[in-house]
């Protein structure tokens, strides 16, 4: 099968992948790069568990062919969170607030939180809910997610 070569910056590190162009980014991350944090919950862009940040924007990696991701693209997965101050803060408040229950949606959810706060460090509750509406969670009822993002916003780098 024809493959293409792509060089991306994944979680701050340069990674070269040789993959069929239509291979899903989710599979490349999980299988070729061993980043099993991103999960498949539906495979059709509805549940948001496979959310990763592409140049800072949350996207569902199950719907993105690897060939569409250009050289030099910055990709952030849940594994990359702890390399950032905001990411570490989010991990801490998610743990404190009991925001992760079964945890399956969390890799996507917490990246949506990171993307929101990076863009808007002072979101109101409606903005928080809107920013996480693409991440389905069946355990929490979302209240503890909202509380975690509010708590993170209070301490977000630059907001202190």
């Amino acid at each position: 099968m024809k493959t293409i070569t792509r060089i991306w910056k994944v979680n701050g590190e340069e990674k070269t992948v040789k993959v069929p162009p239509m291979r899903r980014l989710l599979d490349v991350l999980r299988e070729d790069l061993g980043l099993k944090g991103a999960k498949e919950g539906c495979g059709e862009g509805e549940c948001g568990t496979c959310t990763v940040l592409i140049n800072g924007a949350p996207m569902v990696s199950c719907l993105i062919p690897a060939g569409q991701v250009r050289d030099g693209t910055e990709i952030m997965t849940v594994e990359g969170l702890e390399k950032t101050e905001g990411g570490r803060l989010l991990q801490e408040v998610y743990a404190d607030k009991g925001s992760a229950q079964c945890g399956f949606c969390i890799p996507g959810m917490i990246l949506s939180s990171y993307a929101l706060l990076s863009r808007n460090p002072n979101p109101d509750e409606a903005a928080i809910r809107e920013a996480h509406a693409g991440n389905l969670c069946r355990c929490t009822g979302y209240q503890k997610i909202v509380e975690a993002v509010q708590a993170a916003a209070r301490k977000w780098p630059g907001n202190k």
Partner: peptide
Amino acid sequence: RGVSRVDASDKVRGLARYADD
């Protein structure tokens, strides 16, 4: 007491291993 979940750390770091992992 409302202590943090003992499995929270793995889950927020994407380290928890589910069936497909």
